[in-house]
Structure formats: C-alpha cells, structure tokens
Design a protein around this nucleic acid. Sequence first.
DNA 1: AATACGGGGAC
DNA 2: GTCCCAGTATT
Length: 366
Amino acid sequence: MPELLTTSGNIALTPATFQHRLLEWYDRHGRKTLPWQQDKAPYRVWVSEIMLQQTQVATVIDYYRRFMARFPDVHALAAASQDEVLHLWTGLGYYARGRNLHKAAQILVERYGGEFPVHSLEAMTALPGIGRSTAGAIIAISTGQRGVILDGNVKRVLARLHAVAGWPGKPAVERELWRLAERYTPDERLDDYSQAIMDLGATLCKRGTPSCLFCPFEDVCLAHAQGEERRFPESKPRKVLPERQTIMLLLRNEEGRLLLEQRPGAGIWGGLWCFPQFDDREALSRWIDAKAPGAILEPAWNSFAHTFSHFRLHIVPQPARCKRTGHVSEVDTLWYDSARPANIGLAAPVKQLLNASRPFAAQPSF
DNA sequence: AATACGGGGAC
DNA sequence: GTCCCAGTATT
C-alpha cells in the first residue's frame, strides 16, 4: 500500500532528502541579491535580521541601506547617540529593536572587542534583542556553522509540511516546531539552507495562496495532502481591539517651531519624540495654564486613527499658538523646526502631523 | 503562559 | 476593512 505513505504521513521524508530538495530549489529559484546577502559579515546579517523581525523584506530594504550608510560597522553604531539610531528607525516600528540594537553594539564593543560571540549560542542570545531564532540566523548565515532558525516563514513551512495543529504562539506548538526545525537543519551549507527555507516560505509557501504546484515538497506535504494548506499554521485567536483617544497638542511658537517631548524609554514609542498628549481637554487646559499660559487654541483638526497590534488610538490634533517660548523649555523637550529637521526618532503619526503642519503643505486629511 | 510592543503591506 | 509579518522581552 504505497498510498499509506502519502496519506498517513511524510515519514519517508528524511532530513537528507528535505535538505537536498530545498537546496536544489534554492539554487534555481532563491533570492541571492538582497542588500544583506552581498557581504555577510555578522554585523550586516545582524542588522538585517533585527530589521526583518515582524517587518517585510520590501519595507526593510531602504531602511537597511540608510542604516548601513550611516553605521557601516558595530563601532560606528556603538558610538552613535540613541536619538540618531531611532531617527533611522522612524517608521519601522517596534522601536525597542532599535534601542536594543544600539545597546548590544555597545556591549559588543566593550565586552567582545567589536566581534560577535558566534561560537556561543548562549552568549549570542544574552545580547539584548537577540533571541534563539535570530542568534541561529546570524550564526548560520554569517559563519556557516550550524544554527537553527524558526521565524515566521520557517514556522509556516514546517506547520504545513507536518500539518502541525494549533497556533504557534502556544508554547506546546512552538516546541514541536523547534523540534522539526532542529531535525531538518543540516550540518553543511548552513548559509544557503537558512536563506532557502526562509525564501521558500516567503516566495512560495506564502500565507494566502501558496504555489504548491512549484513546491519541491508537494508530494510529501501533509497540509497539501489534506487540501488544507490555508489552515496551517493556525492564526492567533482574535479579540476586539480596545479603542483609546488622545489629544496631541501642536503648539507653535513665534518662530513657527512646534513643541515636542521625548517619551520615556520603555513602552509605546519609547525614546521617540512626540507632541504633548492628553486624555481629555481638561488635562490639556491644565497643562496650558501651567506650561504655556496665554497660548491660543485654534480649531482642532479632524481626528484620525492609528492602529497598534493591541489597540486603536484615535488622535485629535489640537493646533495652538503661544507668544513666548520661555515657558516650555525643560529637559526632554525641543522646538522642532521643519525647515531644519533634527535627527531624532518620531512616532509615525507625529511625522505625519509634522509634514501636514509645514507652511503651504497640502492638508487633505486633517 | 500570556501579554506588550508599530507600522505597513497583502488581500 | 482584516490579517499578520525574517521575534523578543517582560510579567
């Protein structure tokens, strides 16, 4: 009963067969010209892996180029200010990645002479922002030593190949996927293998419409055998997003500059510069009385929504003018001159509002 | 084990 | 509009 093999499982798929088919596919169809695939120094691989966390390739490319141009090596990054790092991160999201990158660069310089501890998975994962998968990716891609990756692409490929049920956010499901990832990871060509399995997930074993006809594992994939590719991996159980509202004060001084405050290091938009924010108009009034008495409020602009992964924020832009600039000048505040933008990190909606606030700028949406 | 953490692209 | 992505840190 040969059918038994295809319907009862892909137990015939040995790691050697998987690796061989995957690498053959990669040699023919894989992407090999992405910016971070040219010079695979640990530093360059590291920056790319961090940027690619929860962020798609197409979005990352320009950020990566700018970042590498400004910080060509770990020493340049370690010597920079956090503001400058976050400036180049503006719009990428998950800003803790940028702060951790900066922090890790300083650790690498101070403790490791600027070299990555690529011979120790433990030392790698001890660096801020580097977890098990990213450490594996850096080791495998930059050194060719054995390193195991389990990112979103690999999870999808393996979940389908073995019809692994359940949401990968569940520890039990994640453990099973790591077990499979370990099983299939070879001892040779680690750089190509890592790129290959991620590429397969990104370009062929896609979330929405996988191209099973061209897949080297079409005959052994359990999800495909069931005709249920779309069911794997299962998605996160969704809840209704909580809604919150905030007023952003666009306070302009007589020089036409706008007031920004730096947010605390942790939490939403940590370390980024933002307009003063208020839960309600009463809190806004109290702040005006204390910090900028005599400031004149103009009609509020139309509100707009900004969606986070865990809530929706309705933003009411409240423009205002103040006569003198002396009142609001504390640490962690600055007057932003749109004619000469500072190299600081800005939350995406703040950047939008700054653009819309430029003299003679079109303001269709506000 | 569950939750916090952004923004944009795909559909 | 909804979903979710080359995850990690914190609680």
